[in-house]
Design a protein around this nucleic acid. Sequence first.
DNA 1: AGGACTATCCCCAGAACTGGGGATTTGGGG
DNA 2: CCCCAAATCCCCAGTTCTGGGGATAGTCCT
Lengths: 209, 209
Amino acid sequence: MTLLRISLVEDDEEIRNGLEAILRQEDGLILLGAFPTGEDAIAAFPSQVPPPDLFLMDITLPGASGIETTRELRRVHPDLDVLMLTVRDDDQAVFDSLCAGAVGYLLKTTPPRRLLQAIREARDGGSPMSPSIARRVTASFRVERDHTLTPREQEILAALCNGKSYAEAARDLFISESTVHSHIKNIYRKLEVHSKNEAVAKALRNRWV
Amino acid sequence: MTLLRISLVEDDEEIRNGLEAILRQEDGLILLGAFPTGEDAIAAFPSQVPPPDLFLMDITLPGASGIETTRELRRVHPDLDVLMLTVRDDDQAVFDSLCAGAVGYLLKTTPPRRLLQAIREARDGGSPMSPSIARRVTASFRVERDHTLTPREQEILAALCNGKSYAEAARDLFISESTVHSHIKNIYRKLEVHSKNEAVAKALRNRWV
DNA sequence: AGGACTATCCCCAGAACTGGGGATTTGGGG
DNA sequence: CCCCAAATCCCCAGTTCTGGGGATAGTCCT
């Protein structure tokens, strides 16, 4: 079994040393670098330098945040896996991290044994997350429709969300443009919007389509 | 510690019996029902009947799918937790399940020990997922921008995605409507679209905003 | 049988948008 | 120093959308 190369970014020296100790005494891992700032990490792995397999990343850092650092590291090394390790337990941090390309998200309350297990899980193609984080993620998919659009109106709205004009929606649904117009007037009233882009925005942001 | 009430839906009799056996011999759990179809499960828990704390749900079922069953059960009992347990390892099944309100997603290859652990994790406010499933979920958040919108153009696009008209966007950004018009023409050219709703749809579906 | 809702179609007028021009200023990069 | 991209502004003509009417037919519920 091949060695897993790891780096970490953590500004608190005590925690950083603690993590170093945990990782060093584990077989199968090799620590490539423990950086106090995102800038240090980015500077250490320009495009010519082969990066580690996995980064452990704090979020709250002086200078570039762990999220920005993740985005930049992955821009230069698209195959790099980044596992967030932070105290931050809020939607903003979680979703920004995932959008930046993080492969997992652990809270700092994670015990060492679970941390090591998560590292292996990430290597094996998983996405380890602390339970409360995973719940935030699954909850973000939930759809709750308070609106009362009829099936036909939902079809019309879906057409708008596919970028269709009145005329195109009419062709797609085999009805006249007048009928599309009628439906859209009803949709606007129910959603309390006044334009196509407002309706599309509301529909897509709420995952109605 | 209070007992966790569980029901399950699984059409294959052998598997269903196997799951029953696993759950029955575990302390802290009580099995409220093992149903072969979604319709049976829905019929067993009309709104007057207190539902279990957790449902284990297969997806591939005769009649109503596990996803439809989940949607219906949670419509009647909004606080019900549903944990998918299926062979299906594809984006469609995973995201449809989560949108229907599933709290977790396990593959049938999950060993009994891990299944029992996942049940406890779901009860404790987590969202247990098999590693490959979790990876699908985190990967769905990733953003890759191939477009080359300038910062200002991105601001304009963001305004459109908030439902703004030309005039409103102009007010918000302290520029004239003519300038908004100019920017939008450039945005349309770069994104290869020809209307606001098409641009908004493209931006939101790709998570650019 | 009547009422409510849905889906279908039409007209019209004003507002908003789209795409084509062109113009100026500013700040970098070669 | 010159060129170019970016941001700002303007005009115009044609198209599309928005919101206000109204109409007919079918379904479902009472």
